[in-house]
Write a protein that binds this DNA or RNA. Structure first.
Length: 486
RNA sequence: GGCGGUAUCGUCUAGGGGACUAGGACGGAGCCCUCUCAAGGCUCAAACACGGGUUCGAAUCCCGUUACCGCUACCA
């Protein structure tokens, strides 16, 4: 009863000409999810046939980006450039079977033709003039070493396929020109390299950006000419910037590494990316990778381009931040803390329990790891800076504030114990004695301890700081108040 | 220009002919909670691009129009 389907093989095939773009990452994610869900194989192919633009550095950036997102690939990375002999073999095969022909037109000639067409307001399409050359002439030119490219002879008819996201798409072949498949330097053009490689890698489903829709009929034609049935295709929508245009540097951060630096968690990034162009149906939004694997389906793919809204990403990151445990968060926060010089590795190691509790305290109100770093600073020994707005608002009367903080210090010193309950008792008693609202004490104290008007609950802050640092901070506050009293 | 694709709140989306007074989320406004800020709870504003069909009935199906996007290289 079981239907013996061969497990799917999908791939992500970026060209190493920059960094890992969020659009690319999203395409990779969909392929990965599909493979993981179906028990298929997810492959990575580096399309480095454009030697001028490809760099090792950007190849590394792609690996690191995918690894950070948790998208592991199953077999050895394929480098397209290494397939050169096969690409040439395939081109020769097409030449031999008559599916392709040599074209001796130079770039300059073609350019002139194109301009003529443009002047006539005609659309340009190669007129096959080299295909019409007499056999003898072709042989002569080849023998005399005249450079040529190989063009695919597009047959009559119509090319169509059943796209997994768009349904049936058809192109009249007459609208497709005889495209080049091999350059005069014998290197392959994209469409040939892709088809040759995808056949070689036994890809069963090509899932990629829908900017490739118009390449698809050409590729299908190549598959057939090469004697192979084409794979299935799924063209996923693009990701645009807030202005509705293709996402580019103008829109700010477009590399996944940028978001890594800004303190976005990979789990949030992947969750957010998945929702650009895919939905599990219903109201489901917050998901882990595992859940997405279970829920993923081609049917849930959207046809429409999505606009990348970083505000929702940040919200989502906040949600992931508050769900993740301090233990899991620690490895992401620590490097940032060290880099900012807020703490040292030894310090964090020696007070690990305390450190993990601090993380739990901070993660609730942070949207990014960087937020946490900023909020963590006051909890470590060292100078703090007083936010000018905070001073203005909560320490307006310097002398009165100094007096108040002295009273607070005494109350804290007199507290039964350094526990949230005792400290709260002490401070609330102080408020009662002085006949003021508790907030009138908490707020100035918060500024003294953190330099900010925003922090975790004041008793949590006191506990996390401990009596020593608290007293130090209060002494610093007196100094500041005295110095700025004039 | 030619060809192709797409069209639900500002944004991400749910919706598969009657369950739609079109749901959720981000963002916005407000309220509650409260020592601040988050978080959380509640409330409000906010969309089926337009025009024709098909049908007893259309956000859902078909056709046009419009707008937007993509491709149109010896780039990928």
């Amino acid at each position: 009863m079981a239907t013996p389907v061969t497990p799917p093989r999908v791939r992500f095939a970026p060209s190493p000409t920059g960094y890992l773009h969020v659009g690319g990452a999203r395409t990779a994610l969909f392929n990965w999810l599909y493979a993981r869900q179906t028990g298929g194989t997810f492959l990575l192919r580096i399309e480095d046939t454009d030697k001028a633009r490809s760099t090792d550095e950007s190849e590394r950036a792609i690996f690191e980006g995918l690894e950070w997102l948790g998208l592991n690939w199953d077999e050895k990375v394929v480098h397209q450039a290494l397939g050169l002999p096969r690409h040439q073999r395939d081109a020769n095969f097409l030449l031999e079977t008559g599916a392709a022909y040599r074209c001796f037109c130079t770039a300059a000639e073609l350019d002139a033709l194109r301009q003529e067409a443009a002047a006539r307001k005609d659309s340009f399409k190669y007129d096959r003039r080299c295909d019409l050359l007499p056999r003898a002439e072709i042989a002569h030119r080849v023998q005399s070493g005249m450079p040529f490219v190989v063009r695919f002879r597009v047959p009559e008819g119509e090319t169509e396929w059943d796209d997994a996201v768009h349904g049936r798409i058809a192109f009249p072949n007459k609208d497709i020109e005889d495209f080049v498949i091999l350059r005069s330097d014998r290197t392959p053009i994209y469409n040939l390299a892709v088809v040759s490689d995808d056949i070689d890698m036994r890809i069963t489903l090509v899932m990629r950006g829908d900017d490739h829709i118009s390449n698809t009929p050409k590729q299908i034609l190549l598959y057939r000419a090469l004697g192979t049935e084409p794979p299935h295709f799924a063209h996923v929508p693009m990701i645009h910037g807030m202005d509705g245009k293709k996402l580019s540097k103008r829109h700010g951060a477009t590399a996944v590494a940028d978001y890594q630096k800004e303190g976005i968690l990979p789990s949030a990034m992947v969750n957010f990316l998945a929702l650009m162009g895919w939905s599990p149906g219903g109201d489901r939004e917050l998901m882990t990778l595992e859940e997405m694997i279970a829920l993923f389906s081609l049917e849930g793919l959207q046809k429409k381009a999505a606009i990348f809204d970083t505000r929702k990403l940040e919200w989502m990151n906040g949600q992931h931040l508050s769900r993740i445990s301090a233990m899991e968060l620690e490895p992401r926060l620590t490097p940032a803390l060290l880099e900012e010089g807020i703490a040292t590795a030894e310090m964090l190691e020696s007070r690990r329990e305390w450190y993990l509790e601090l993380i739990d305290l901070l993660k609730v109100r942070a949207r990014t790891v960087l937020d946490m770093v900023r909020q963590a600073a006051p909890f470590f020994a060292g100078e703090i800076t007083y936010d000018s707005d905070a001073v203005e608002k909560q320490w307006k009367d310097r002398a009165a504030t100094a007096e108040l903080l002295h009273a607070v210090q005494e109350s804290l010193a007199a507290a039964a114990a350094w526990t949230p309950e005792s400290l709260e008792q002490a401070l609330r008693d102080l408020a009662t004695t002085r006949g003021v609202a508790a907030g009138k004490i908490f707020q100035p104290l918060r500024v003294a301890l953190t330099g900010l008007t925003v922090s975790p609950g004041i008793f949590e802050v006191l506990i996390a700081m401990g009596p020593e640092l608290t007293n130090q901070r209060l002494r610093d506050a007196y100094e500041f108040l005295k110095a700025s009293a004039v």
